[in-house]
Write a protein that binds this DNA or RNA. Structure first.
Lengths: 339, 339
DNA sequence: CGCCTGTGTTCCAACGATGTAAACCGGACA
DNA sequence: TGTCCGGTTTACATCGTTGGAACACAGGCG
């Protein structure tokens, strides 16, 4: 163990509490005392014991972020942003992987190590409204990312998925494509994100006076490359394959690109492809991938600040909804005119 | 806060210590007492307060993993593996991003929140031997990943980079390629990994009776896609461009593929490309990428277990070296015969 | 000159768990 | 009957910190 507050105190010739006051920036400490104490702290390299502090104060300075898997680029980038933002705010981040399993998400909400964590940022995949009805008494504050699971009484940060889906779909229509398909539908009851993107897709088609062709919405098990590739294979096997595909994630889109390439279909000439997320990989794929972006740093910032706000006395404020913007990025996979 | 041990004790009609004994599986507790206490625990949903336990026992059950950036797929996959393995062993994982900066790696070694962490797994980029000479007294045990910084007195998990580089290079030679280039050299003093891979590359060429052609070893700033793309551009601008490229990471290789495609060079017909790491992306790129793999789960397992071993009394054991195997995965980017 | 106010500091009791040493208890043995 | 003994349980101090009450001391006021 390192230096204790007691030792600093005796070196500075004051009591332990005075050292504590200096460390915590308490107001009424004489400048000369403060300086003397600070000097002792620096000389001895004192750093407060967080277990003790947390035992006493109930705060640890640790927040947890629970997400499906860290090896999916979207979540990795999200986690990176959360860690960076949290660090700027003086917090450390503990990462929990839920695998998108309801059970594990429930555990996370109930509080992974409730006494160690000041708050939780959760990116739910499987969790439904039922799981969130009664926040456990001792559970730390919670911020939900992604789609609103329904009115849950928790803070929430999301993009407008319906509008984002419309934007992507409109873009494909603007290229003159007519047989539009979507990859990423999901059966799971709780798959709000997929449902909303599908809703936006269908709405955009309808507004353009078109309808969703049979078989042109492909369901997937998860938003992975292999699911995208398989879905694309199925689309290509249709009697009237699509000439444009909207994918609910970049990974799905990259999988689709892979399948298209394997079968010798040209992108964007034969089939235009657009994704969602703008992960780094999409800027280097062959061809580069058009996509709809949400700003991860903005999401992370809003989430961390929402947590910190609750911790700083905002315990009982009404839950807030934050909606972050999105943006269309056009790259090679949907270049206009290339036909 | 939740239930306290005191309340469980009074409910079971025993002292606090007895509850503690039951919780910690102490031997001499009468079966009937144990059962009564256990029942009280279950009924009240008691869970020990970890801050308090850690204050008293000095253990938190949290290990930290410090790596450059979570949004680089290689490290994301590594972190995912560490978290998974740690969880199986009952530990939670705190993630710290160093950005590969020496200063931040030093901070990590000195102990990010030393009292909160039982041990640290560090994947150093910039850290040299000097930074590791004198383990701070209070600092938690440390396991180094990747190249041995030199004899540092710490446990270490790595692959044999020289052998891996030889394997990759030999593979390119076996295709009949003659003008081999490497992407990934680094100037930084501490860039051991780059140096060793370069060493293996050069040795393999020499054994085949060839030498490294001028300009055929491209330096990079970091192992990112954009660095790979730029390096590939420079190689293609040479009077005698290479017909095969060994990249020190998959990201570099993917960047190189991107540059090759942009300039209309065919892979593998005109230039064969091989990477290192086997990140998921490499299995879906166009063309799919050949690579040399190390087993991330094995690395993570060895690292976590090395830490736990130290914690379980192995404090003063001699530092151990673990070398994990690697394997060549041949994909489209180096298909033999395609010329 | 004593009283009050406000500032700066100290003392003491927590926070919730665990290690230590001592107490308890019934039975075995002398 | 008394002592000893092992297993079982308890009381108490303790980990390092912070909150609150208490205290000391100055200056301003009546």
């Amino acid at each position: 163990m390192g230096v204790r507050m007691k030792e600093v105190a005796s070196r500075a010739g004051v009591s332990v509490k005075t050292v504590s006051n200096v460390v915590n920036g308490y107001l009424h400490v004489a400048p000369t005392t403060r300086e003397r104490v600070q000097q002792a702290i620096d000389e001895m390299g004192y750093r407060p014991n967080l277990s003790a502090r947390s035992l006493r104060s109930g705060r640890t300075g640790i927040i947890a972020v629970a997400l499906p898997r860290l090896d999916e680029p979207y979540f990795a980038e999200l986690a990176a942003a959360v860690i960076e933002v949290a660090e700027q705010r003086g917090c450390t981040v503990l990462v929990d992987q839920t695998d998108g399993l309801r059970e594990r998400e429930q555990v996370a909400v109930a509080g992974i190590r409730p006494d160690l964590i000041d708050g939780l940022i959760l990116s739910p995949l499987a969790l439904g409204a039922d799981d969130l009805v009664s926040p456990a008494a001792g559970a730390p504050p919670l911020v939900l990312l992604g789609e609103r699971v329904s009115d849950t009484g928790f803070d929430h940060v999301a993009i407008d998925n319906v509008a984002a889906a419309r934007t992507a779909t409109d873009h494909l229509l603007s290229l003159g494509r007519r047989r539009l398909a979507a990859i990423g539908g999901m059966q799971a009851v709780a798959a709000q994100t997929a449902r909303l993107r599908l809703e936006g897709f269908a709405a955009a088609l309808q507004d353009a006076g078109r309808t969703v062709l049979p078989g042109h919405v492909q369901e997937v098990e998860a938003f992975r490359r292999e699911d995208g590739a398989r879905a694309m294979d199925r689309l290509l096997d249709l009697p009237e394959p699509p000439d444009a595909v909207y994918c609910f994630s970049d990974l799905l889109a990259l999988g689709a690109l892979h399948a298209l390439h394997r079968r010798g279909v040209r992108v964007p000439q034969d089939v235009a492809v657009i994704g969602t997320d703008d992960i780094a990989e999409s800027r280097f794929s062959t061809p580069t991938l058009s996509t709809v972006v949400q700003d991860q740093v903005e999401i992370a910032t809003l989430a961390v600040e929402a947590l910190l706000h609750r911790l700083d006395g905002g315990h009982d404020d009404a839950p807030r909804e934050h909606t972050v913007g999105f943006e269309l990025r056009v790259r090679e996979s949907t270049v206009a005119g290339a036909r």
